[in-house]
């Protein structure tokens, strides 16, 4: 692999200083995304998946602070840049798509103005040329009659159409990486299917890398190439999407897969993981999942496992060898 990864995160640690002491919200997160690759990041609320996204784009709110590790975009370190340089990177090299399209669209501007301004700032194109380019983009994301719709305000669009506009805005500067944080969560299923298909197609044709943050394993299954499963601020398993879904190695990942009701079969009981994810101020020593894990051994409670190779994936579990042996048996 001669080409450096588009995004490389190594040992990222993020802490909140609170009056009850320091809470570690992200703990030693490492992963990379190659060109044109879609990395899915799943986890329950509070697992740290959105926070990972915020850390990469340099938008961690106080009192949160990156206290360790590094983030590299195409080999260049970006976690320690001054705010103004980071702002340039955010607009130009990393595109963002959020759950609520209205956070990215200014309600008092026509969508065309926002698109054209973004294109002009980043490419130095003239007004007419930028407008042509904006119309082309809107066509590409599937907005009907873009020549007319370009002069409409955000509130004149439906939820799905707004999210398409946001995607156009994110892709307008041809970024290296797009971070999509729950891009379809607020949408109905039929619209969600449209947006997923669109995102997939655009990234494939443009070779854009995507970090897709979602709680919905189904969306990941359809969209992502690789997936990272997060739990209590750590990555517990990362690997090709097929392997993680069909042969999850970490007990949490396998519990999660069993807990999702399926469309094609009706089981009597879903696999359930007892308890719930610990709060940040009560993360146990050792493996954070150990108290809920049916297979935990003494070592799990005292020593924290790092990611280690497990089949085609990597899992942070002391029992990795055993679990995979059982699964194949």
């Amino acid at each position: 692999m001669a080409e450096p990864a588009v995004l490389e995160v190594k040992g990222l640690t993020l802490e909140f200083a609170t009056r009850h002491g320091t809470l570690r919200a992200l703990d030693d997160i490492s992963f990379s995304i190659r060109r044109g690759e879609v990395l899915g990041v799943v986890g329950e609320s509070g697992a740290g998946k959105s926070l990972t996204g915020s850390a990469i784009i340099g938008l961690v709110e106080r009192p949160g602070r990156i206290t360790g590790g590094e983030i590299r975009l195409k080999g260049e370190r970006i976690d320690n840049l001054p705010p103004d340089r980071m702002r340039a990177i955010r607009g130009r090299r990393i595109g963002m798509i959020f759950q609520d399209p209205l956070t990215s669209l200014n309600p008092v501007f026509r969508i065309g103005d926002q698109l054209i301004e973004t294109i002009q700032t980043h490419t130095g194109m003239g007004q007419a040329e930028a407008r042509q380019r904006a119309i082309a983009l809107l066509t590409e994301v599937g907005i009907p009659a873009p020549e007319n719709r370009i002069d409409a305000y955000p509130h004149e669009f439906s939820g799905g159409m707004r999210q398409r506009v946001v995607i156009a805005l994110a892709l307008s500067v041809e970024p290296d990486l797009v971070i999509a944080d729950e891009p379809t969560t607020a949408l109905d299923v039929s619209v969600q299917a449209q947006i997923i298909t669109l995102l997939k197609r655009l990234c494939r044709t443009r070779g854009t890398s995507v970090m897709l943050i979602t709680h919905d394993m189904g969306v990941i299954a359809e969209t992502a190439d690789r997936v990272a499963v997060m739990y209590a601020g750590r990555i517990v398993e990362i690997g090709p999407v097929k392997d993680v879904i069909k042969h999850p190695q970490h007990p949490y990942a396998s519990g999660l897969m069993g807990a999702i009701p399926a469309l094609d079969t009706r089981l009597n009981r879903l696999t359930q993981i007892s308890g719930s994810m610990p709060r940040l101020d009560a993360i146990p020593a050792g493996c954070a999942f150990a108290p809920r894990c049916t297979k935990a051994i003494d070592r799990c409670r005292s020593e924290r496992p790092d990611l280690m190779p497990a089949g085609a994936s990597e899992a942070a579990c002391w029992l990795v060898g055993k679990v995979s042996a059982e699964a194949s048996a």
């Binding site: 299923v189 039929s190 969600q192 299917a193 997923i196 919905d216 394993m217 189904g218 969306v219 299954a221 359809e222 969209t223 190439d225 999407v241 097929k242 879904i245 069909k246 897969m257 999702i260 399926a262 469309l263 094609d264």
Partner: peptide, 9 residues
């Protein structure tokens, strides 16, 4: 339209 775990990619 429902994304399904059994239909990867």
């Amino acid at each position: 339209a429902v994304p399904n775990l059994s239909e990867i990619g």
